[in-house]
């Protein structure tokens, strides 16, 4: 009962923050709608990028065009989830809050500081960029020629969630570092570029690159692994690894956040 009361309280806070973010976003309608168009175009251009490659090759290291389209759809879905919610909050806006000394106010609020700084600003530009992603899902389901069972889809959703959890953990680590460094925004930019590697099927790489993308910077968790689950190509051992690494990074990051908060000596005057 207590858990549900807490859950609904946070859900309500989330709704309020989302509403405020929307009001702020549409206060400059012109730039808002151009920004939305740019985001939609970006999603389309990822598909165009692969289509241009497939004009010259028949397969992408064993992945045909529809399979790549499925991967792209998952990649864009993942991107929408993290960008709308915590990515920019933790990578850019939280360090800014810290620098201005406004984080101290967060600490005295009757709410988890981590929750507040992670979801303070909801990025509606990306929420409204959903149509191309929805269209791609529709295409994949109806024209892709794939057969997904309920089990496949449940497993897919579980590992997509684990991927998000893993990335959330990485971003919490990054945010925690901000307590000691002056301005870690460059790390956020670096993470964005690393994240872009997820649009390629990691299983297609060989040698050191494959090792890095599978185990050291496992971007395969973001799109390749969920896609492989739907295509019945996933390696059970790697599923176990993904589960362990996602949980380890996420729960490890929570401990690190607590440690960082304890050592925070306030920045305001």
């Amino acid at each position: 009962m207590k858990f549900f009361r807490k859950f609904f309280k946070y859900l309500h806070v989330f709704q309020v923050m989302a509403k405020v973010s929307l009001m702020v976003n549409i206060s400059s309608r012109g730039t808002f709608f151009i920004g939305v168009f740019a985001k939609m175009l970006r999603a389309i251009l990822v598909v165009v990028f692969f289509q241009a490659i497939f004009f010259h090759v028949k397969s992408f290291a064993g992945w045909d065009f529809n399979e790549i389209l499925l991967l792209t759809t998952i990649y864009l879905t993942f991107e929408v989830i993290v960008i709308i919610t915590f990515h920019r909050n933790l990578a850019y806006w939280f360090p800014d809050l810290l620098l201005r000394g406004e984080f101290d106010l967060t600490l005295i609020r009757p709410i988890s500081p981590l929750f507040f700084v992670s979801f303070r600003i909801i990025d509606w530009f990306d929420v409204t960029s959903l149509p191309p992603v929805i269209f791609l899902w529709w295409y994949v389901f109806t024209q892709g020629g794939f057969v997904f069972t309920a089990f496949d889809f449940t497993l897919f959703l579980l590992f997509l969630f684990l991927g998000v959890m893993f990335y959330f953990g990485l971003m919490i680590f990054l945010a925690g570092v901000a307590f000691w460094t002056v301005n870690p925004q460059g790390v956020g930019r670096l993470m964005e570029r690393v994240f872009m590697a997820a649009k390629y099927p990691v299983s297609a790489f060989t040698g050191h690159v494959r090792t890095v993308l599978l185990f050291i910077l496992p971007v395969s968790l973001f799109a390749t692994l969920p896609a492989e689950i739907l295509l019945h190509r996933s390696d059970p051992w790697y599923l176990i690894f993904a589960f362990v690494i996602a949980c380890a990074v996420f729960f490890g990051s929570l401990l690190f956040w607590k440690f960082a908060i304890k050592h925070y000596s306030s920045a305001s005057n």
């Binding site: 090759v57 301005n183 590697a197 390629y200």
Partner: peptide, 28 residues
């Protein structure tokens, strides 16, 4: 450091693109 990390991110992306093209030439 910020600018270096941003540039380094770009280099990482370039290396991934090189790996992709190497792969396309190798398997195509």
């Amino acid at each position: 450091l910020n600018l270096f990390l941003e540039v380094f991110g770009g280099i990482f992306q370039t290396l991934i693109t090189v790996a992709v093209w190497t792969l396309l030439f190798r398997f195509g």
